[in-house]
Design a protein around this nucleic acid. Structure first.
Lengths: 330, 330
DNA sequence: CTGAAAGCGCTTACAG
DNA sequence: CTGAAAGCGCTTACAG
């Protein structure tokens, strides 16, 4: 920058202001400075700028399930809008609840990033306060935290869309295959989807058989085990609404092994529209986590530029009927 | 850092040296300083460190397929060893070939990161030279580049393992469902797997029917289309070796739609052991991309610490026999 | 509108 | 083994 200043015959401060387009530089000098800078192929040193100013040009994304379709899609969406905006993306996986507590307790984010996006993680007020005190902007994707802008689908609605489809097909004995672990989305999604399930049943005037409500660990393995549990019950359900596509795929494996036809004997559907849902012909309620990531990134930009954050309504979800749902037998 | 120095009763320089484990600090003072730092939840400001010294405390991972099992698993592996080492991980997705050229041409990595890990991307000598000139260390995972340490499986061998399994079952009309696009691993993997396929056939003394060698775009969609192509041929194969599990799953959908039984009429197998392979009962040659990521991270640490880089042999792959392969009919 | 100067929080020769 | 000091390349009050 010193070179640029010397060559343009101005001071460092003026160059700094001109290059960033701040007010208080005459158009003439500004243009001349920019010309010289271009000529010299000059780019500001981000470390120095960050040290002197207060922004780092980086945002962190914190999630717990990286090698998963959902998490990595959100990251992709974030990257797609953050990078063109000149911001770099830093990823941090938190494995288990303890790791997560440790992470937010010892705020290593301060001065490392301008903002953090938490994916499917519900922060406590204390955690949010700590981040804000550290001057770090916070945005949530797929979960809610106090005083934090967020983007998310309406989990209650998504579950209703799923269950209503089963109801319309004529099902009455509908099982809920939910998940519990912190490794699978936030507890909020679990709670909301269960609520949507119950709401839909209630509106149809059908009492929920509590024996058909199972909460197991997440992922396909959990889905398989949860389905085994359902299969060992006194009466089988005629349809299963699973927390996610992965859970549903696990459940379908159990059904296949038990020799139960899908959808002939039992219908299965879930939420996500994972790329493999199409391959396995799974009926599901689709969501778009890449779009979610993009929207979260927009909120980050608003926050960093001091603009009012665009409030976005719940992200749309839509039923995709494929081959794993059909009217019940008899 | 000033706080830590004051509290420990030493100078800034000593704290800096102690925290980085440099020589020339007595074990006693070093431990005391570290204790105080821990107590104060102190973390060095990376900007200042980078500005004063030359390292940024960051490493970038560059890949093209983020929302994929392979890519995100490698990232997870990297994160798992880089983070404990005090390094932050920055992700950069390159979408298409042009984007990738642009990225490496305008070296925005200089002074932003200490090292870059390319995942399944083959760099040119010029690109590598540019990175090295910029003082950036380079490591490759799942691909090779000139003068760059790498970790990878032996793709030729993996393909042979797959094809040999089919040969032992008695198959002779074996199709290769390969991929071409840059969006799916590096071209190196495609070439090597095809070579492994041909090698195995040759060693079994079976001529390859070139009509059964199909290269389609990647992903499950490409697999489905490639399989359609094979199905429209004059004579069907009795077994299909697919580039990856995703491709194989796409192929299996085409087979299902065509009413062809797997493995009764056609056997299918591939490479990866994607979590969904188990769910869909897919026979495959397993690899471990998380381990690959960890190993790449170790190499990065070696490079950054000026240690000789540990050469690691090809990562092991192993055949996992499941339900999609069986002896040929009749 | 522009400049001179302090300072961001570290690292690194250089002394001792 | 440890300290005092210069300096990394910027930004930002503060003057003018």
């Amino acid at each position: 920058m010193a070179d640029v200043a010397a060559r343009a015959g101005v001071s460092l401060g003026t160059v700094s202001r001109a290059l960033r387009g701040l007010d208080g530089v005459s158009p003439g000098t500004r243009d001349r400075i920019r010309e010289v800078a271009a000529e010299l192929d000059y780019v500001v040193n981000p470390e120095a700028a960050a040290l002197a100013g207060r922004s780092t040009g980086r945002v962190a994304v914190v999630l717990h399930d990286l090698p998963s379709w959902y998490g990595s899609s959100v990251v992709l969406g974030l990257e797609r809008v953050l990078r063109p905006a000149g911001l770099d993306l830093l990823v941090r996986c938190v494995d288990d609840p303890e790791d997560r507590v440790r992470f937010f307790a010892s705020m290593p984010l301060r001065r490392k990033v301008d903002a953090v996006v938490v994916v499917a993680i519900a922060l406590t007020s204390a955690e949010v306060a700590k981040l804000h005190d550290g001057g770090v902007a916070v945005v949530a994707a797929g979960s809610h935290s106090p005083d934090v802008p967020f983007v998310a689908i309406d989990d209650v609605l998504a579950a209703q869309q799923a269950v209503n489809h089963l109801l319309q097909l004529g099902h009455r004995r509908i099982a809920l295959l939910n998940t519990v672990a912190a490794t699978d989305r936030a507890w909020q999604a679990q709670r909301d989807r269960e609520q949507g399930f119950r709401l839909a049943m209630e509106m149809a005037g059908i009492p929920v058989d509590e024996e058909l409500v199972v909460s197991w660990s997440g992922g396909s393995r959990g889905g398989a085990q949860g389905m085994d549990r359902l299969l060992s019950g006194r009466r089988l359900p005629s349809a299963v609404f699973a927390f996610s596509d992965e859970v549903a795929l696990g459940a379908m494996r159990s059904l296949r092994r038990a020799g139960i036809g899908v959808p002939r004997q039992i219908s299965v559907l879930s939420i996500d529209d994972h790329p493999l849902a199409e391959l396995t012909d799974l009926t599901t309620v689709a969501q778009d986590p890449v779009a979610l990531g993009r929207a979260a990134a927009e909120q980050v930009l608003d926050l960093l530029h001091g603009r009012p954050v665009r409030e976005v309504g719940p992200f749309p979800t839509r039923l995709v009927v494929r081959g794993t749902t059909a009217p019940p037998l008899e």
